[in-house]
Design a protein around this nucleic acid. Structure first.
Length: 483
RNA sequence: GCUCCCUUCGUCUAUCGGUUAGGACACCAGAUUUUCAAUUUGGUAAGACGGGUUCGACUCCCGUAGGGAGCGCCA
């Protein structure tokens, strides 16, 4: 039986998970899900969720990416424990462990040149087989080492037998040792390699549960060998399936949004995105919409599946709509203000709403949020607030205001003006009376009114619109159309 | 090419040998309605294929097909 029941960490150590992004780009949405799973598991078990920045690639690692990744995690409200650890800063420790392995005879100096390796790689490729480096230096006399050549340090691992990865998601995965060559742990310039640094760091950080994408599964086999060589206790491994695009291929640029910050700019709520991401590869019965507290309560590795999931914007949109509708108005307004600066042309809208008065937008929210799946849709629906007189009517709105409509609007202005109270209910009552007297269907009068008030044929309920706009502005807009 | 992994409605998933195979999104139709939504009622829709094992297989095993991941002195 695969070690699948061990999800709550049988040992006495409290759970420590970590998310270890490489700052060579922003936070990938798949990475966000990995972070979420680690976070959920840590919070579920009452353990710790640590952050490690894997910046050992000095060429591609950029401080602005570190900032962006942290910013995205904060936006997603995935709080980590303690300070983020920067891997590059620990190079001395990595070298020390490498030297320890060397001294113990568990690693050796390999003088294979880049050219020799390239030749081996080319040969392997030509023969259509994977590259397995059999270093001649594994058992060579150190005295024969070429002078002036800086060696790389390779781990001396068994050539026979097998290495088993007991994975909480993937089950028991067996790798024949003959397929695992002696991995380099320290480069010729002394810099640690990824697979080595990760193990040293995970061990030193006390990580008990490594939850990462399946693309790391073969790395885990190699990393296990480092744990073995050092005599360190292995963490529990859980390799979660990857997130694919709508076409089933790995999420890439052609699928559109990859970066978490793009989802922010598209107007998704962090809580909705978290809910959506949680359901990709993990489930709790038939539960679809649940609070983060519930996710924490329910989350467990045993309920993570093995097959990859396709990203579905329609479902994310539906979920987001649910969160918008359920959102508290004050909170929602805060979200809109937070979102606007991240959107295209958002700054312009931001100042326009500020000029019109945020209270107007706040007042419009109840009628607006019923009809928006995303923040930009909501903002679009609120555009009538920041429209300036005389309104520019779109084509459909223009058609609605014909000769008959103008007559009706003129009469309505008088009625509305006479309304004892400027609120949705009395205004609606006034219009209903008018329509009945004239024998007109409600839509016949309401639509031209909508066109005059918002410049469009589609909007929130007209009486809500009038209430939000206020008497002077609303009547002014109607008068503008009477001509 | 080699190694490993995956395969239930279009999509995300439930099922852990015995169900009319359930839910959600999407889609279609009806109701509601001042527009659009929302809401609500109902509907279409799935165990890749072929062999076993078993009284019984979506569930277990093998094979085939399709898909994915990995194969660096990158992470």
């Amino acid at each position: 039986m695969p070690d699948n029941n061990n999800s709550t960490n049988s040992g006495t150590r409290p759970v420590v998970t970590r998310f270890a992004p490489s700052p060579t780009g922003t936070l990938h949405i798949g990475g966000a899900r990995t972070a979420l799973f680690n976070w959920l598991y840590a919070r579920h078990t009452g353990g710790k969720f640590l952050l490690r920045i894997e910046d050992t690639d000095r060429e591609r690692s950029k401080p602005e990416h570190v900032t962006a990744i942290l910013e995205s995690l904060k936006w997603l409200e995935l709080d980590w424990d303690g300070e983020p650890l920067f891997q590059f800063a620990r190079a001395d420790r990595h070298r020390a462990v490498g030297q320890e392995l060397l001294a113990a005879g568990k690693a050796y100096r390999c003088y294979l040149s880049a050219e020799e390796l390239a030749a081996m790689r080319a040969k392997a490729e030509a023969e259509k087989r994977p590259l397995i480096v059999e270093s001649p230096w594994r058992d060579a006399d150190p005295a024969t080492a070429p002078a002036g050549v800086k060696p790389a340090i390779r781990l001396r691992t068994a050539r026979t037998g097998e290495t088993v990865v007991d994975d909480q998601v993937q089950g028991r995965v067996v790798f024949p040792n003959k397929d695992l060559d002696d991995m380099i742990i320290l480069r010729s310039d002394g810099a640690p390699t990824y697979n080595f640094a990760v193990v040293v760091d995970d061990h030193d950080m006390g990580v008990t549960n490594v939850i990462r994408g399946v693309d790391h599964l073969t790395n885990t086999a190699r990393q296990s060998l480092v744990y073995q060589a050092m005599g360190w206790e292995l963490p529990h491994f859980a390799h979660i399936p990857l997130v694919h695009g709508a076409d089933g291929a790995k999420l890439s640029k052609r699928h559109g949004a990859q970066g978490t910050e793009e989802y922010r700019a598209m107007g998704y709520l962090p809580a909705a995105l978290r809910n959506y991401l949680a359901r990709l590869g993990w489930s709790h019965g038939d539960d679809e919409i649940f609070s983060t507290d519930k996710a924490i309560e329910w989350f467990d590795i045993v309920n993570v599946g093995k097959s990859p999931a396709r990203f579905d914007f329609a479902k994310l949109g539906d979920l987001n709509g649910n969160y918008i509708r359920a959102a508290d108005d004050v909170e929602l307004l805060r979200r809109i203000k937070d979102y606007l600066p991240h959107a295209d042309n958002g700054s312009k809208d931001f100042s326009a709403f500020a000029t019109a008065g945020w209270d107007k937008l706040a007042a419009a929210l109840p009628s607006l949020k019923e009809r928006a799946k995303t923040l930009p849709e909501l903002v679009e629906g609120a555009k009538y607030i920041i429209a300036t007189r005389p309104l520019a009517l779109d084509e459909k709105a223009q058609k609605l205001i014909d000769a008959d409509a103008k007559v009706a609007l003129a009469e309505l202005v008088k009625l509305f003006d006479a309304s004892p109270e400027w609120a949705a209910a009395p205004l609606e009552a006034a219009l209903r009376v008018y329509a009945e007297e004239k024998g007109l269907k409600l839509g016949k009068v309401a639509q031209p009114l909508r066109a005059a008030l918002t410049g469009r044929a589609v909007s929130p309920p007209v009486f809500d619109v009038m209430a939000v706009l206020g008497k002077a502005e609303a009547l002014g807009r109607i008068r503008d159309q009477i001509g």
